[in-house]
């Protein structure tokens, strides 16, 4: 957890532990007061579901009947389950390729949209649009765009003499197709970047401009470092979200063709609500939880090297 803030924090905590000063007590009281809504909500609405699902993972539970304890059997089955491996592989593919692409594109668009040009409001809306359009409509559209024969993308590729792939219809290209579809939805994180760009002081840019730094140079040495906390946020959230990726695969491909889009959360969902194996689904969920937690902590660990907090 050596996100800079956290490291400094630990140091601060250690220092204050020696003093056990009045200030620490006041801060503790204030801190707890501020986060008290979350604590209450956590105790009221989250502790039970979380512990219940953990318990279910050690039971044979169909939801239809009370669970019966079976020890670690679900986890043992899971290790032997080929579909567990296939679905985890599919999800990791989408995450490792999709998250970096999504991050770069979202930042790029936010930077573009932060340049004051006529129609800025209009463009901001336009780039946000795909996230607003209901998934049933986007799914339908993508059948057109990704159509192997006359879809926009393959027609575009044909201009360069490239024969486009079968996209969603072939096991090899179905995952790249889903990633493309995801990229359409970067509007959400783009808006967050846009908001953070408003906090980059213009004075810094003006000063650097006087020193002769060009746009690209200023972007990399002023803008990006200053918004690293928000980049950090988006990467972590992107990771958490991508490892739980579900909706489009559920609606558009239902896991096919040849299990190539059977993503982890879809397999989990099938177990819970189609096969009525909530116990097994819970075990899958907790394994995913551990995977997400470890990868998040990994990102936190690297954060000290690249995330800059002005507020610390």
């Amino acid at each position: 957890m050596s996100d800079i803030a956290l490291v400094k924090d630990q140091q601060a905590t250690r220092r204050s532990a020696h003093r056990i000063g009045r200030l620490t007590r006041i801060n503790l009281r204030n801190g707890l007061l501020f986060i008290s809504p979350w604590i209450i909500g956590f105790l009221a609405f989250q502790v039970f579901p979380i512990t219940a699902s953990l318990y279910y993972s050690f039971t044979n539970y169909t939801v239809l009947k009370p669970p019966t304890f079976i020890g670690t059997l679900n986890y043992v089955d899971l290790v032997k389950d080929p579909l567990f491996r296939i679905s985890l592989g599919n999800t990791l593919y989408l995450t490792l390729v999709g998250v970096p692409f999504g991050t770069v594109i979202a930042i790029g668009l936010a930077l573009l949209l932060n340049v004051k040009v006529p129609g800025q409001a209009f463009f901001r809306t336009v780039f946000y649009l795909p996230t607003v359009v209901p998934v049933v409509a986007t799914a339908a559209l993508f059948l057109w765009i990704l159509n192997p024969q006359f879809g926009l993308i393959n027609q575009f590729l044909a201009l360069f003499g490239i024969v486009g792939p079968g996209w969603l219809a072939t096991p090899l290209w179905s995952k790249p197709a889903l990633i493309l579809l995801q990229l359409w939805g970067v509007g959400g994180s783009m808006v967050i970047y846009l908001a953070s760009l408003q906090d980059v002081p213009a004075e810094l840019h003006e000063a650097a401009q006087i020193d002769g730094a060009g746009t690209i140079r200023r972007t990399f040495s002023i803008t990006l470092p200053l918004i690293t906390p928000v980049i950090f946020f988006n990467v972590v959230i992107g990771l958490i979200g991508s490892l739980q990726y579900f909706t489009q695969a559920y609606i558009m491909t239902a896991g096919g063709p040849a299990n190539s889009t059977l993503v982890y959360a879809l397999y989990l969902y099938n177990n819970a609500f189609e096969y009525f194996h909530m116990g097994y689904a819970s075990a899958l969920a907790w394994v995913l939880f551990i995977i997400i937690l470890l990868s998040t902590l990994l990102v936190f660990r690297t954060a000290g090297r690249w995330v800059y907090y002005a507020g610390q």
């Binding site: 049933v136 799914a139 339908a140 059948l143 990704l146 969603l168 219809a169 609606i251 558009m252 491909t253 239902a254 896991g255 096919g256 063709p257």
Partner: peptide, 13 residues
């Protein structure tokens, strides 16, 4: 509703 591409359509159907 499920909207399914190509081959899987029948299955889901």
């Amino acid at each position: 509703m499920k909207l399914v591409s190509g081959e899987t359509h029948e299955k889901v159907t």
